[in-house]
Simulated assay, not measured.
Amino acid sequence: MLDACAELVDEVGYEGLTTTLLAERAEVAIGSVYQFFPDKRAIVQALTLRTMEAYLQRLNERFAQDDLTHWWDGVDAGIDEYITMHRTVPGFRTLHFGDVVDLHLLAEDRDNNGVIAEQLARVLVDRFGIADTPRLRFTLEIAVEAADSLIKLAFRRVPDGDEQVLAEAKALIREYLHRQVDTSTTTAE
């Protein structure tokens, strides 16, 4: 059902999605949909959580590779995975991490991009020895918001992502983080 939901969200958007359409696409009885989900919002929340888990799994796999030698390689990997998921994961382009449905889907006390920033902070601290400070977390929240907006712009301009906008987004985020992280939060290398 979640795969059918992802396809439909890309085709008709969140507003056009109905449980009836979902049941038809998934080739299940409408009662089966309601057996697992009380409404379309719950279905989309489940899809978004699955997407978030997939993103974090992909990041963990990328971060486990030895080719990440500096913290900005980790940032680039995070952006690259986000772009790849925009291009390849059904429903991701429309839903991202739930902002269409609920800005606090991933955590009640933080917005979705804040949760992503927190995950990136953990990786930068654990993998690259960057000092875990409130400033680091704030800086990453700003960077995630900016990257999210610019990546959305790239995919609005060109269906597969405007490469020029994507390159500028990465350069902007990297430069911003380089100034913020290198001057205020890194430990001695």
Score class of each variant (00 low, 15 high):
residue 108 E to T: 12
residue 96 H to C: 06
residue 86 H to M: 14
residue 95 L to G: 01
residue 47 L to S: 03
residue 61 E to V: 12
residue 31 G to C: 07
residue 103 L to F: 13
residue 74 G to P: 05
residue 63 F to W: 13
residue 107 A to V: 03
residue 102 D to F: 02
residue 52 M to G: 03
residue 77 A to L: 12
residue 101 V to R: 00
residue 45 Q to M: 08
residue 110 R to M: 14
residue 46 A to N: 03
residue 105 L to S: 02
residue 97 F to A: 06
residue 85 M to S: 02
residue 44 V to T: 10
residue 22 L to M: 01
residue 81 E to V: 15
residue 23 A to R: 00
residue 86 H to T: 00
residue 52 M to N: 08
residue 72 W to M: 12
residue 85 M to T: 01
residue 33 V to Y: 09
residue 93 R to W: 00
residue 108 E to W: 08
residue 62 R to G: 09
residue 60 N to D: 15
residue 50 R to E: 15
residue 67 D to N: 14
residue 77 A to Q: 10
residue 52 M to I: 05
residue 95 L to Q: 09
residue 28 V to E: 03
residue 105 L to C: 06
residue 29 A to S: 15
residue 95 L to A: 08
residue 86 H to L: 04
residue 80 D to K: 07
residue 83 I to F: 04
residue 105 L to N: 01
residue 84 T to P: 00
residue 80 D to F: 03
residue 42 A to K: 04
residue 22 L to G: 00
residue 75 V to P: 02
residue 98 G to N: 04
residue 49 L to Y: 09
residue 88 T to S: 14
residue 71 W to M: 08
residue 91 G to C: 02
residue 91 G to H: 03
residue 92 F to G: 05
residue 100 V to S: 11
residue 61 E to T: 13
residue 46 A to Q: 12
residue 65 Q to T: 13
residue 53 E to I: 03
residue 95 L to M: 15
residue 23 A to L: 02
residue 24 E to I: 01
residue 47 L to T: 03
residue 77 A to T: 11
residue 63 F to P: 01
residue 76 D to F: 13
residue 65 Q to F: 05
residue 93 R to M: 00
residue 88 T to M: 03
residue 78 G to K: 00
residue 81 E to K: 02
residue 38 P to N: 04
residue 75 V to R: 02
residue 84 T to A: 13
residue 24 E to S: 01
residue 76 D to S: 11
residue 72 W to A: 07
residue 89 V to Q: 09
residue 20 T to F: 03
residue 31 G to N: 09
residue 24 E to W: 01
residue 102 D to P: 03
residue 29 A to W: 07
residue 49 L to N: 08
residue 62 R to P: 07
residue 71 W to G: 05
residue 72 W to N: 10
residue 82 Y to H: 10
residue 73 D to H: 15
residue 30 I to V: 08
residue 58 R to N: 09
residue 43 I to L: 12
residue 98 G to T: 01
residue 27 E to L: 03
residue 108 E to M: 06
residue 51 T to A: 12
residue 69 T to Y: 12
residue 45 Q to D: 13
residue 79 I to N: 04
residue 64 A to Q: 13
residue 28 V to L: 14
residue 51 T to E: 10
residue 20 T to A: 13
residue 52 M to E: 13
residue 86 H to I: 00
residue 106 L to H: 08
residue 27 E to G: 09
residue 104 H to Q: 11
residue 64 A to N: 14
residue 95 L to F: 07
residue 74 G to I: 04
residue 56 L to I: 11
residue 29 A to C: 11
residue 79 I to A: 06
residue 42 A to L: 05
residue 58 R to W: 08
residue 42 A to N: 04
residue 100 V to I: 09
residue 97 F to I: 10
residue 27 E to R: 12
residue 73 D to L: 09
residue 74 G to A: 15
residue 62 R to E: 15
residue 78 G to F: 11
residue 55 Y to M: 04
residue 35 Q to A: 13
residue 110 R to W: 07
residue 39 D to G: 09
residue 35 Q to F: 15
residue 100 V to H: 06
residue 92 F to Q: 06
residue 62 R to Q: 14
residue 64 A to C: 07
residue 108 E to S: 14
residue 100 V to F: 06
residue 71 W to F: 15
residue 70 H to F: 13
residue 103 L to Q: 10
residue 46 A to E: 14
residue 64 A to V: 05
residue 103 L to S: 12
